[in-house]
Design a protein around this nucleic acid. Structure first.
Lengths: 340, 340
DNA sequence: GTTAGCACTCTAAAGCCTTGAGTGCTAACT
DNA sequence: AGTTAGCACTCAAGGCTTTAGAGTGCTAAC
């Protein structure tokens, strides 16, 4: 699309701007160009790149900064795919260890990525509407109180204490065991809801009233387990970027609330996904860039890991980082499931 | 200590400054004073309050702002103890509900307090070195994998999945049950550590190797359950205070790291505790004020709830809020324990 | 003891100037 | 035709000065 020389110049502008954060002038660009040119020639080329929409100027007499399409062209055509450097890889691996608890694993993943990138990160725990219930346990801990435990086929463990109005009798426990093991274990999480629980409770006859709160709790746990948590880390890192300072509060509140993030996450495609500045549909994110990637557990896309920072991100380093991390997380979680 | 008139003037300065955030001049103060005076007289009094150390001036020709001792005097002698207004009380109660899961309860408490005060809040889950183990369960979920569950007398529930090198046999499960129910249940959490577990494991003879990882996990869970988590909420609120802007990053990182907060929390006395600006021993907090209070579960001080904000806090409102919330949390958690 | 009056202080905001990096254009050069 | 030197022009950023106004401390009268 662009001439070879224009591409080289665009790449140099992007890379220099990412490093310095200052608009890049024609003169200072000469040093980082592979060929010998005068500043005048570079100026001409830059003027053309500007009119093509790849570069922009904060004001007439300033240097150029990459526009949103400039970054886009750079990422899609010029950047190449660097391998992640040894050091970062080591750091990630040693932080993650061989953790197999999904919640913990994803939060550590977020932490290490935040530290590595100096950005905010998000990570979601493996979702699974289609995940199966592996086990349900009810352990009495008082005359009217029991501990309920739910374990899924993806290794997610949820538990809760539940109180009842009625005394826990042995027959009650037995019929709870019968119902759950015959009707619930092995079923997908999404099949379990308050309505099905009511019909199940009704089926035990006289004990229905005593049974219902426990079954309802199970439905709660199932809902909990099927919903992906969105974990945020390193939000404070965002305070270090001058270009975000103005909207720091707004941005961080947007992230904290998290709801709209859900839709964002689910809409992303399967490989690494980059959204630059205005490409984001949410106003609060339009000064920022997102790098999102999905990880797969057992062949199914299950969750997302991502980085949030200013548009001036070191994409050439961060994209491999995110890709590497999602691969690793996917592999570990898949292994954890296979092992049992 | 101070003349009646000086007290009235000091109180007015503090209150007006808390509202406006601007240094308070003698003239604008007249309106909020209960008695009729000229600005000159007020000026004389303010000059004296300054030389006594209760007020200070950003520069010679500016109004006065309360010094750290000014706030202190106000809080200790002038503020009075307002009741918490109906509206806030309602808000707190409806947010908290009748939640009985300690972790959840404390995090909601932090959230609602943050919303109410527009500050950052911290809350700790009930600690308990002396808490007793109420129940231990081991549920096999695979040939070599089991789910371990630990429940404490204070209602804290911790669970984890544990893998072993060896197959899970019925005798192994039985001897695990025997050991835990005879040696661990009923004991305080602090008695359970890796060393005691090793001796326990050794006592089962041939199965020691298979047993150890599970017992070690129990020790882990016990440690987890005995340590109070420090929960932070509403950190982004701090970005709205101009006087904190400069150190926002430093302050938020300090809070995030959290370690030093531990010592701070444990050193506080039993009623509501206020630390104003320089009274804090940590540099990062010296532009901020803390309001901390402990809640008691079953007669023992178990955890802390607190507010972190600029020195210019509405103490007269926040102190009752924190007191009310700690009382409520203490009551709910105590009730939860008594009920079973 | 209180107050009116006044000279004084000092910041914040506004305006002005200077500097310098960077531009676009033109005309000469290869 | 493509490249380059040269030059006039632009504009933000920083420094300096001015102005306005809020607030003070002090003195002398009440």
């Amino acid at each position: 699309m662009l001439s070879d020389r224009k591409e080289k110049i665009l790449a140099a502008v992007v890379e220099q701007y990412i490093k310095s954060g200052e608009p890049v002038g024609s003169k200072s660009l000469l040093e980082s160009l592979p060929m010998k040119l005068s500043s005048a020639t570079v100026r001409n080329e830059m003027a053309e790149l500007s009119s093509m929409g790849y570069l922009s100027q904060p004001h007439t007499s300033a240097g150029r900064i990459p526009s949103h399409s400039g970054y886009r062209y750079y990422i899609d055509n010029l950047m190449g795919t660097r391998e992640l450097d040894e050091q970062s890889r080591k750091k990630i691996e040693s932080a993650i260890g061989s953790n197999t608890d999904p919640d913990k694993l994803l939060s550590t993943a977020g932490e290490v990525l935040a530290e590595l990138t100096n950005c905010a990160t998000l990570s979601t725990t493996p979702a699974g509407e289609t995940t199966l219930i592996k086990r349900i346990e009810m352990v009495p801990v008082g005359t009217r109180t029991a501990m309920l435990v739910l374990l899924t086929s993806t290794g997610i463990l949820k538990s809760r204490i539940c109180r009842s109005e009625f005394e826990l009798t042995v027959p009650l426990l037995e019929s709870f065991y019968n119902i759950t093991s015959s009707q619930l274990v092995g079923k997908p999480l999404c099949d379990v809801n308050i309505a099905t629980m009511q019909t199940l409770a009704a089926s035990v006859g006289a004990d229905a009233f005593a049974m219902l709160p426990f079954l309802a709790s199970i439905a709660d746990l199932a809902k909990d387990a099927s919903q992906a948590d969105i974990l945020l880390e390193g939000q404070t890192n965002l305070l270090n970027y001058r270009e975000l300072e103005e909207n720091a509060y707004e941005l961080m509140e947007f992230l904290r609330k998290g709801e709209p993030l859900g839709s964002l996450i689910s809409s992303s495609k399967s490989d690494v996904n980059v959204l630059i500045g205005e490409e984001n549909k949410f106003r609060q994110l339009q000064n920022s860039s997102l790098i999102l990637a999905k990880y797969s557990v057992g062949g199914h896309e299950s969750g997302t890991i991502g980085v949030i920072g200013p548009t001036r991100l070191d994409y050439a380093k961060l994209i491999p980082s995110v890709r590497y991390l999602t691969d690793l997380v996917g592999r570990l979680l898949t292994k954890a499931i296979d092992e049992e």
